[in-house]
Amino acid sequence: MKILEVCTVDFSLTGIPVHIRNYYNELKKNNKIDIVAKSFDKKILRTMPLENETVLYELPRTKNPILYISKLRKIVAKNNYDVVHIHGNSSTMALELLACRSSSALTIVHTHNTEYKAKVLNVLLKPYLMHHADLYFAASSEAGKKLYNRKKFVVIKNGIDVSNFKFNLEERLYIRKKLNITDDKIILGHVGTFNEQKNQDFLLKLSKKLNPKKYHFVLIGDGEREKFISKIANKEMFTVLKTTDEIGKFYSSFDMFLFPSNWEGLGMAAVEAQYATLQTLVSDRIPKTVKISNNIKFLPLEVNRWVKEIENYSKEDLLKSRKNNFISAEYDIKNCAKKLMNLYIKEYNAKNQKSI
C-alpha cells in the first residue's frame, strides 16, 4: 500500500513521532510510506533507516495554515496514496482533512492525548473533524472519548520493539559508570518532555524528602529542561540528560521508574518501563490501560504517599523483581503492526467497494 503518515508535531524522540517510527520500522518493507512533519530530528531518524523510497516532507504547520493546507494537498494529490493517517492531539487535525478533501485515500485521524493547547480552535474545528474522516483512532479509551465524544473509534496500541527494553546487566553497569553513580544508589528514573504535562516539578518535591545518600534521580527529556535544572536545590541528587536514541540502556540502569504526569493520552514511557521490568509508580491521572504487568502502581499526586512507596523497596527487592515479572505482549510492535495493517486493508477495500 501507499501510506502517508502525517505528524502534526516536530518529529523527534517524543510520543507521537516515536509511535509513527515504531510502526514504520515494521511496515516499511512491504509498503511505500511517506511522512509529513513540521521538522525532523536526526536522533530519531537514526533509529529508523528509510526504505522503499520513503520521502520525508518538512512542512511548517502553524505560521501559515492556508499555505500548509495547500502544500499538503499537492503532496496528497501527486502521490495518490491509499491511506492518509493523521496523528495529533485535537480537532486541528481538520486542517489535514481539508487537504485531503479531493483525495480518494482512506483518511484516518488519530488522537494521542487528553488535553489540548488550542482549546478555542479545537471547538471551532470539531464539527468538520467529526464528519470528514473515514476512521477515528485513539491511543486509549480516555483519549478517544475526550475528542470524539460518542462517535465510534478504534484504540490503536502504541506498539514498541520490546527487545529494546530487556534488562541488560552489562548496559546497567556501563551507564552507571558513565554517569558516575555508584551501584549502592537507588536510581529513580524518569523519561519525558520537560513540561507541565509530565510534571517533573513533583520529582523535586520528592527529592526534598528522600535520603540523598541512598537515592539519585536520572531524568531524560527535551523541552523546558534548562528551566527545570534551575529549580533543583540539591544538584548532587540529580542527573538531567537530553533525549537519546539508546534509551533502552538507561532503563536497565534505573531501579525504579517514576511517572507523575498531570494527564496522558496513554503514557508510553510507563509501558516501556514495565517491559524493562522496572517497579513503576505512576500518577492516578494516567489511563489504567497502561498497566501491562504487576510492577505498576497508581498513586494520587501526594508527596508523602510516593515517598512511603519508594522507601518500601530495598535495593535487593528491586533487583530481584526484575527477574520474575510476567508482562503482557499486547504492546509488542510485531503484533500491533499486523493488526493495523489488516485494518488498513479491510477499511480501504470497504471504502472502494462503496465507491463502485
Rank of each mutant, 00 (worst) to 15 (best):
F202R: 12
I181S: 01
N80D: 15
Y68D: 07
K339R: 13
Q274K: 03
Y136I: 08
K145M: 05
K227W: 04
Q197M: 11
I86K: 00
G192N: 12
T92F: 00
K351Q: 15
D222E: 15
L67D: 14
N30E: 15
I186Y: 00
Q200Y: 09
Y313V: 06
I345N: 14
S328Y: 05
Y136P: 09
E236H: 09
E196A: 13
S283F: 04
A233M: 04
V303A: 04
N211W: 09
D201M: 06
R73G: 13
P49W: 12
G192T: 11
E5R: 13
T107A: 11
E53I: 02
E302S: 05
F254M: 10
S252N: 11
L95A: 05
L343P: 06
R176P: 01
K28A: 11
L204M: 02
T239Y: 04
T277K: 14
I3Q: 04
K2A: 05
T8K: 02
K63Y: 13
C7W: 03
M48A: 14
T239W: 05
L179A: 03
I186N: 08
M93W: 00
S104A: 10
N89C: 03
S261D: 05
S104Y: 09
S91T: 03
P49Y: 05
K119H: 04
L219K: 04
L278G: 01
G189C: 10
G267S: 09
S91P: 08
K323A: 11
L97M: 07
P127E: 13
T54Y: 11
K288V: 12
H190C: 13
N52S: 10
D201F: 07
Y68C: 01
N349S: 13
I75L: 09
K346I: 09
L206R: 07
L56S: 12
R305H: 07
F165T: 02
T62N: 14
Y275L: 05
S321W: 02
N180I: 05
L281T: 03
I327L: 03
K354H: 13
L4G: 09
N31A: 09
Q274R: 02
K43L: 14
I3S: 08
F238M: 08
L281W: 03
I16S: 00
L59H: 10
M341A: 13
K32P: 00
D184F: 03
L206Q: 10
A270Q: 05
K38G: 01
F259C: 06
A143V: 07
K320M: 09
Y57A: 09
S12P: 01
V120I: 15
P127F: 08
A138M: 05
K334T: 14
F194H: 12
S141E: 15
K185F: 11
A37M: 06
Y344S: 13
I86G: 01
K119F: 07
F254G: 01
